[in-house]
Computed example of a mutant assay.
Amino acid sequence: MIDIHCHILPNVDDGAECMQEAINMAKIAKEQGINKIIATPHYHPEFKYAKGEELKEIYKEFKNELKENNIDIEMYLGNEIYYTYDLIDKFSELDFYSLNDSKYILIEFPPNNFPNNLCNVVYEIKQQGFTPILAHVERYIKIHEDPEIIYDCIKTGAIIQINSSSLIGKQGKEFQKICNLLISRNMVHLVSTDAHSDTRRRPLLKDAYEYVEKKHSKSMAENLFINNAQCILDNRDIIIEEPLEKQIEKVSLLSRIFRR
């Protein structure tokens, strides 16, 4: 499997706190059947997270440590970009990393200041030459209230990612419910760990893969955990299934009469 959202690099953000913890995370990932990871440390214009060349050097050091520890995982570099209202205007000035130097960027939104015009944001990012992957969409209250936001974003060109822990109910039934709703309507393209440590938020995918395989289908699981992520690594277009429109229940005139 391939994890395209993981805070595994040590001492760069709120993820792994040291090299040993990062190595432990990699061992867990390998045991889970994860063979490729895109490290996606937070990129926040106002926070002093490691970025640019400093981040690339830490990434190279971690890859060397994996080799020294005989952990056979392929590593790639990216960022999880924090959206601010002036972000797009500054795109050309910022030193963030797209996912494996592809056209895909991973982007998250402030939960308490979620943009009302999300489709416009997607459109503007596309105009900059990138394809936005909307991170852990199940965590936003506005999506619970109106899943059609995701439908519209996909039609505008967004790729949708959810967290594995949400999908299997580790974050509560409501998170699991919205994940399943989105999957059933072809409105999820990637399931990732969003792992931050080797204890509390670990890089776990196996149970989520088996859950999708059982509840939905094996082909769906293959796409969400492997095929679509490989397209990102190869900088190829993900084959997007047409998202399903909301089903509006139609009540016949005859049934209305009998209900009276």
Rank of each mutant, 00 (worst) to 15 (best):
I143S: 03
M25Q: 09
P132R: 13
D101L: 08
S197K: 07
A158L: 11
G157N: 14
P110D: 13
D95F: 02
P111C: 00
S217G: 05
D194G: 04
A221K: 07
I71M: 00
R202T: 14
L118A: 11
V188G: 09
K103M: 09
E124W: 01
Q127K: 15
N117A: 09
L204C: 04
D234A: 05
V122W: 03
V212C: 06
P111F: 14
R202Y: 06
S164T: 11
D86F: 03
I88A: 08
L106W: 07
A229W: 02
P10F: 12
I23T: 12
N228C: 12
E174S: 15
G169H: 09
A26R: 08
D72L: 10
N228I: 12
E138H: 02
L205T: 01
K142Q: 13
L224K: 04
D89E: 15
S164A: 15
K51Q: 14
V121Y: 07
K30R: 15
S219H: 02
N228K: 04
E145T: 06
L204Y: 12
C6R: 07
E213A: 11
L167D: 01
I73G: 08
Q20L: 13
C179A: 05
L182I: 00
N113Q: 12
K48Y: 12
A16D: 08
D3K: 03
F130G: 09
I133M: 06
S252T: 15
I125H: 02
L224R: 08
I88G: 10
N11G: 13
A229V: 10
H189C: 10
E65F: 10
L205Q: 02
L190R: 09
H42L: 09
I141V: 12
R201L: 01
K27C: 09
I232P: 05
K30V: 03
F175E: 10
E138N: 00
F109L: 02
D146S: 09
L9R: 03
R185W: 07
N112S: 13
A158G: 07
G129E: 11
V137Y: 06
E210D: 13
I162K: 06
E245K: 13
E68S: 12
Y104N: 07
D198L: 06
N24D: 15
S102Q: 01
I238C: 04
L87M: 10
L87G: 07
G172I: 08
I257K: 14
T156M: 15
N64Y: 09
I240Q: 11
I143F: 02
H144V: 06
K103I: 14
Q230L: 11
C231W: 02
N228S: 12
I23N: 07
I226T: 15
L55S: 10
D95H: 00
C6I: 10
Y104K: 06
Q127P: 06
H196E: 03
A229I: 08
Y76G: 00
S197F: 12
I149G: 00
S252H: 03
S92V: 04
E80K: 01
P243C: 11
P10L: 05
L204T: 08
N228G: 02
F96C: 10
I168F: 11
